[in-house]
Amino acid sequence: MALKASELKVGDVYEEQVATNLSRTQIVQYAGASGDYMPLHSDEVYAREIAGYPGVFAHGMLSMGATGVMLTNWVGDGRLTKYSARFTRQVWPGDDLIAKATVTEIHEEDGHQVAELDVVTVNQDDQPVINGKATARLDA
């Protein structure tokens, strides 16, 4: 289901929890599916002893992918025209992720109504892990 421009207004918010107690296994799953086998994300020994991190952490792109679940659940399938994210903080095993989109503008683009969205994903301590933006095509 797509959103309707007539029923949407600036300031509208949609929020969804997109990860709960994030597991090392899901990080490995993402490594396999994406092909990004960077050992920082799946190899505890390497992450600690070579890279100097407390342990493995999630791919930024796993958080962006999980945040995308919230976006497509809200704006509908195939409705995103743009999506960008800055990775502001690492995501660790055990983290919860809550993704939120806020409408900042509704306007016409290439003959369609579109919504500009501010996107932020926070962890269980309310610290932002992703700051992003998205644009979605709306129904009239």
Binding site: M38, L40, Y46, I50, A51, G52, H59, G60, M61, M64, L80, T81, K82, Y83, S84, A85, R86, F87
Partner: peptide, 16 residues
């Protein structure tokens, strides 16, 4: 392995 270990993803943008 240290050079790779210092490499991180800062930002990603898509246009569909």
């Amino acid at each position: 392995g240290g050079d790779n270990a210092r490499m991180l993803h800062a930002e990603q943008q898509y246009v569909y």
